[in-house]
Amino acid sequence: MGCFHSKTRKQFPGHEDPVLLASQTAFSVSEVEALFELFKSISSSVIDDGLINKEELQLALFKNRKKENLFANRIFDLFDVKQKGVIDFGDFVRLLNVFHPNAPQEDKINLSFKLYDMDGTGYIERQEVKQMLIALLCESEMKLADETIEMILDKTFVEADIDQDGKIDKSEWHNFVTRNPSLLKIMTLPYLRDITTTFPSFVFNSEVDEVAT
C-alpha cells in the first residue's frame, strides 16, 4: 500500500469501481483512473457535482456554453444511455471505450449509426442528415444554397441508400462505411492510447494497490 492510498472514495456520486470498469472495457485500471482525472475536470467546470451536464460537455467540446449545438447534443445523448440528463463516470468510460483505437470496428459502426439516427427509428433519414448539414454550415459559417444541399443529399443517398427507400438502414450503413472508411475516423481517439501519460496525476489519487495493470 503506497502512502497515497485511500479507501475513502465517495467523493463523487455514481463513481463506479475502477477495477470493475476496467474489467468491462479495453482500459486498464490505471487508464480508468487517468480517465477519472479528465472526468473530474469536465464535471466540475460549471457545477462541481461529479456528473457532467450538457453545458459542461459543450464547454469541453467548444470552449463555450452559450450556443445550443446539435452535435454536442448528439454526443451528450450517446453518453447518456440511460437518459438521466447527466453523464456519470461509468457512462463516460463505457462510451469512450468504443472510441479506443483497439475497440471492435463493429462497435464503432453501430455507434456512428446511432449518432446519425437522431430520432432513434432505426433508420438514418434524409431529413436528419439535412438537419445536421445545416447545423454544420451554421457552425462553420459556410454558406451553401439549398439546392446545393439537396444535391449533396442526392449524391449521398444514391451511394448509401441501396434499396432507394429514402432512408439508410443498419446494413446499408455498414456497407457504406465499409466503402468509405474515412467516415469512421471520428470514432477513434488516438489520445486514449496515452491517457495515463496525459493525466499522470491519477497516480496520486489512485485507490487500488496495484495500478500498473
Binding site: L61, L70, I75, L133, L136, E139, L153, N180, S182
Partner: peptide
C-alpha cells in the same frame, strides 16, 4: 470551395462538436 464532391457524412464529420478529441485539450 468544392464541398459538393464530398458526401453529406464526410462534411458532417468535420464538425468540431463531433470531435471528441477536444475533450482532451485540458
Amino acid at each position: 470551395a468544392a464541398p459538393v464532391t464530398m458526401n453529406a457524412f464526410e462534411l458532417i464529420s468535420t464538425s468540431q462538436g463531433l470531435n471528441l478529441g477536444s475533450l482532451f485539450d485540458r
